[in-house]
Simulated assay, not measured.
Amino acid sequence: MIITIDGPAGAGKGTVARFLAEKYNLKKLDTGLLYRALAKEVIASNLDPQTHATEIVALARQISIESTNQEDLRTEIVANMASKIASSPEVRKILNQLQRDFAHGDPSPFKGVILDGRDIGTVICPEADCKIFLTASSEVRAMRRNKEGGGTPHSHGEISKIMVERDTRDQNRKVAPLSAAENAHIIDTTHLTIDEVCSRAAYYVDQLYLKKKNINS
Rank of each mutant, 00 (worst) to 15 (best):
V123N: 00
Q207Y: 09
N216Y: 10
R145D: 08
K174T: 09
D101K: 09
I94K: 06
G12W: 11
I77F: 12
R144C: 03
S64A: 15
S108E: 15
L95A: 06
I77M: 09
A37N: 11
A86L: 05
T193Q: 13
T68I: 14
I215F: 12
E165S: 09
A86P: 01
Q99C: 11
D195T: 08
A201M: 04
Y204C: 00
T135G: 06
L115C: 00
Q97P: 08
K211F: 10
L208R: 04
I77T: 10
V197C: 05
R173A: 00
C198F: 07
G157N: 13
L208F: 13
S67H: 12
N183K: 08
K213S: 05
A44M: 15
R166K: 01
R18N: 02
G105V: 07
M1Y: 02
A58G: 14
K111L: 04
T168E: 11
A136V: 10
L29V: 05
A17T: 03
N172R: 09
N214Y: 14
D206W: 09
L210K: 10
K40C: 08
I215Q: 12
A58K: 15
C130R: 01
K13S: 10
I120L: 05
K28D: 00
Q99G: 08
G10M: 07
A9E: 02
D167W: 04
F110G: 00
R200T: 07
R92A: 05
R141S: 02
L26F: 03
L95Q: 05
D116Q: 04
E182V: 06
A181Y: 01
H154G: 02
L98S: 08
K174S: 13
A136Q: 09
D48A: 09
R118L: 02
M143E: 10
E76Q: 12
K23E: 08
E90S: 11
L33A: 10
T15A: 05
T122R: 00
